[in-house]
Structures are given as C-alpha cells and as structure tokens.
Amino acid sequence: MRSMLREGFLELDVNGEHRKVVARPADTLLHVLRERLGLTGAKPSCKNGDCGACTVLVDGWPIKSCLMLAVEAEGHLITTVEGLKNTPIQKSFVDNFAFQCGYCTSGFLMNCHALAQIHPQASYATMREWLQSNLCRCTSYEEITQAMENVLLKT
C-alpha cells in the first residue's frame, strides 16, 4: 500500500520526463506543477474546478489540476501545455485568433487537444459538451469553437 504521511518525495511523469519533487500529501497537482516544477502553463484562477484554466492531461484525459492531489498523479502520465509542441490545435488557435488576454488559453488548448485525440470525429454536441468545462472572460468562445471545429474537420 502506498502511503504518504508527511511532506516527502513524489515521483511524477510530466511531459515525458521523470521528475522527483518534494510535496505535502495535501498539495494539489496545480500547486506542485507551478511552485515546485516551475511549469506555470497551468493557470490558477478559481481554484474551485469552475474555470478550467488549470486543465492538464492525465493519461490523455483533461483534468482540472486544482482538484487533484499531486500524490494521486503518481504512476500516471501528465501533460501540461509546455508538453504540447506544434500541435494542430495550437496552430488553429493562432489561425482563428482564438484568444485575447490568453490567461484561459492553456486550459482550453489542453481540453481541445484531448478531444481531438480521444474523439477525432466528435459531433458538434460532443464538442460543446467538452468545451463547457472552460471559461473565457474575454468571451472568445466563437473563435475557440471555430478553432476546435477546424481541427476536427481535418481528421
């Protein structure tokens, strides 16, 4: 049985790298990614699971990292926006001007990238259902939807 009784070492697989990091059992994945590993792409915003700015992928599925303990992520493959390199969704966001201030963008990118990977033939309804999980206060929703649709249409 795995146990972690106090602050100690965690071993995480992040963006294809094996990382060993000191954390508390009660630390969220968001906190450890940003404050211990320096991966600031996942953004803290509501920290309550509402906004999606902190979305990362865990074994390919989008997860709000403010609602996951870092210790829970042991043994799973974590991908942050720093782990996306020239993916179709990144290009599509640029082509469609799918951001304004950019704070929510990394969370949207992770969610959209996961959808394109898991359901490349996703229906419009499925796409909307997935995109409900992220908020953009600059209201770039139409452009984000277009960027996502363009990636899905090309697969």
């Binding site: 049985m1 795995r2 146990s3 972690m4 009784l5 106090r6 602050e7 508390r24 059992p25 009660a26 630390d27 969220t28 906190h31 920290k47 303990l69 210790v71």
Partner: peptide
C-alpha cells in the same frame, strides 16, 4: 491550496 496537512493512503484491496 489546502491549508492543513493530512495523511494519504492508497490501499490495493
């Protein structure tokens, strides 16, 4: 951030 500590266990059965 959770402002206090707790112990974490992951049993297999």
């Amino acid at each position: 951030m959770i402002p206090f500590d707790f112990e974490y266990y992951r049993p297999e059965t």
